[in-house]
């Protein structure tokens, strides 16, 4: 018997039950795949055009993406200035790629990020170097999603480490504050944290003082993410044997040095999966900022589909938006698996 045939016999028709499953699966695929191919490829309309073209083609309307992708990606940002958010996004993605390399985990990377955030802000806001000023209320789409996710994660992560250490602190006041914060934030939905940050928070500010809407959403996301991350980090701290703390103490390292050099490097690598899980959750949860009136990628995509002529093709639009979310999340997930393996190779 040839290789493929014996493979099929062993793996697909090994027992009556698995034969039945194989047949059912094939039948299902037969039902689903041809119409899908028909819709997505054969009957689809590609390239530029108007909704009429899609109606005539009958299949998937990829023309929608050609015509509307800039609205989906950049929202209501002034159309002739779209190169600015595009550049800003490219900058962030490039820096994310650099940060993924463990050899680049040096102090300069922090500086590079600070610089990138400044350039990002300058590009998006304008008002400097002859760039036309653009209000944050006009920001939208992918740059908004990215900046909220990246900054929320970047600030929440160190904050969560402090919270986790605080929760294990020997000082009752610090412990109480940490526990109180974590439990309080974990006890409410993200939507209400965002509402609080965006509606309630300004009420407490003195008359005339306002905080930018994007910043408020960012603060809400950060506070929320930090509470969850803190619990993941605490799990890692708890898994470190007492002997490690004692050995660090016995060398006279002191609290902060022993945490930074001995305990956290070990604890954090133990909890990479739950931490990355939280990063992914945070990235996807940015789509909730729409409830405080911000147009993130999902909301911008939705708005781009508002034109009655294009509305029948919302599936294509949402599929495209989903694909963007998926790319980022899938990258984070694969990266964390790689990082875990890479770090494990180091010791033993």
């Amino acid at each position: 018997m040839s290789r493929p045939l014996s493979w099929a016999k062993a793996n697909l028709f090994g027992s009556p039950a698995s034969s039945l499953l194989t047949v059912l699966t094939l039948a299902l695929l037969w039902q689903v795949v041809p119409p899908l191919v028909d819709w997505a490829l054969i009957g689809a309309s590609w390239g530029a055009g108007d909704p009429e073209r899609c109606r005539a083609a009958g299949g998937a309307c990829w023309t929608l993406l050609t015509e509307r992708h800039r609205l989906m990606l950049f929202g209501v940002y002034p159309y002739d200035q779209h190169w600015r958010p595009a550049l800003a996004v490219a900058l962030f993605i490039a820096l994310l790629a650099i940060s993924a390399n463990r050899r680049c985990w040096k102090p300069w990377l922090g500086g590079a990020w600070a610089l990138a955030v400044m350039i990002f802000a300058a590009l998006m806001w304008g008002g400097v170097l002859g760039l036309a000023p653009v209000e944050t209320s006009q920001w939208g789409g992918l740059p908004l999603t990215l900046v909220i996710a990246v900054l929320a994660i970047a600030v929440a992560f160190p904050f969560s480490i402090l919270l986790a250490l605080g929760r294990r602190s020997g000082l009752p006041a610090i412990r109480a504050v940490s526990v109180g914060y974590i439990e309080l934030v974990r006890g409410v939905p993200l939507v209400s944290v965002l509402f609080m940050a965006s509606v309630m928070f300004p009420l407490f500010l003195p008359e005339g003082m306002t905080i930018d809407k994007v910043l408020r959403a960012l603060v809400g996301m950060t506070l929320f993410t930090a509470a969850y991350l803190a619990e993941a980090v605490r799990g890692g701290l708890q898994a470190i044997p007492r002997g490690q703390f004692e050995a660090a103490d016995a060398l006279g390292l002191g609290y902060w040095r022993s945490m930074r050099l001995i305990i956290l490097p070990q604890a954090l690598r133990l909890v990479i999966p739950p931490i990355v899980n939280q990063f992914i959750t945070c990235f996807k949860d940015t789509s909730l900022v729409t409830i405080v009136g911000l147009y993130d990628l999902l909301a911008a995509s939705k708005a781009a589909l508002n034109d009655p002529a294009w509305r029948p093709y919302f599936v294509e639009g949402y599929l495209a938006a989903a694909l963007v979310y998926f790319c980022f999340c899938f990258f984070m997930s694969r990266y964390s698996q790689w990082l875990e393996r890479d770090l494990r190779q180091g010791n033993r």
Partner: peptide, 20 residues
Amino acid sequence: IEAIRRRVGMVFQSFNLFPH
């Protein structure tokens, strides 16, 4: 205490080397 600890070396039953 940190200063004293630097002048006192300690060896544990379970080694407690830093595995990373």
